[in-house]
Design a protein around this nucleic acid. Sequence first.
DNA 1: TGATTATCAACAAGTCATGCTAGCTAACAG
DNA 2: CTGTTAGCTAGCATGACTTGTTGATAATCA
Lengths: 140, 140
Amino acid sequence: MKTPEELVARFRKQGYKVTPQRQLIFRLLNGNTAHPTAETLYEVAAQQMPGISLRTVYQTLSELSAMGEVQHIDLGSGAVRFDPNVDDHHHLVCSTCGVVHDVYVNQTPLHFEGDVEGFAVHSTRIVFSGECARCAHLSA
Amino acid sequence: MKTPEELVARFRKQGYKVTPQRQLIFRLLNGNTAHPTAETLYEVAAQQMPGISLRTVYQTLSELSAMGEVQHIDLGSGAVRFDPNVDDHHHLVCSTCGVVHDVYVNQTPLHFEGDVEGFAVHSTRIVFSGECARCAHLSA
DNA sequence: TGATTATCAACAAGTCATGCTAGCTAACAG
DNA sequence: CTGTTAGCTAGCATGACTTGTTGATAATCA
Ligand SMILES: [Mn+2]
Ligand SMILES: [Mn+2]
Ligand SMILES: [Zn+2]
Ligand SMILES: [Zn+2]
């Protein structure tokens, strides 16, 4: 994702107004590695800006997603998560606490076997599930 | 997944009654490579057994899932899909028509890099997205 | 300053999945 | 064969997540 300053410029250029709400969300996403849901991002935002609406958070995330500034990741466990890291990367998910980490896989493109003649692969999504070190430690 | 006959035995052994509805679902899933949703499975079932309820389809799929006879796959696009293939395999999804194919990846376990010391990986899920041959042909 | 757009609140709707009730029916043990 | 029990269906409700709508207010930016 671009920096908050670059996003301000980009929004203005596209005819979107630069509101305090949008700027707040830009800042909260900047360098954010937590893979937050709209809801959790809203909670953090509401602390710094009481009165901001969940609807606006969803709206701004959709705009950023449409612009390719964030990706939205469906890990198949509840709400969609948003990721300002738009590099080619994959995810490691702790089944216990739900924490999500970025990981990079070098063996791509992967080879596969199957009855799928003529299929053109455009993207590959890998999710590793397991138990993080902290959860392993707590349950020991 | 076990054969319908084996499932009948297994259900009986666990104290579950063997009803025509359950047996129909066993048969519809047997060798099924379509990765159906509960809804689509219900539609097929209802043709052969008018009056069967969607609730019962969901219920039986949950039971089979709890028994490990089917896996449920969340591809992040709408409803969960059910898969009687419980081998270690992955999926290829056409972004256009939504068809899902089984694929087998040999390079597992995959290596990855990232700041994830001590994480114990229990499972890996790979989804390849792209365009199937039929959709490529139609759009050409 | 003025036109445009965003925001908010409140409410609705849609999708997917599950829960609950009541009454009827069917399975299976004895 | 029969009684007990479980499962079935219809109908309605709930829940999580997400998006749409409307109308009033406020802020942005040319
Ligand atoms: Mn990420
Ligand atoms: Mn499969
Ligand atoms: Zn954990
Ligand atoms: Zn296709």
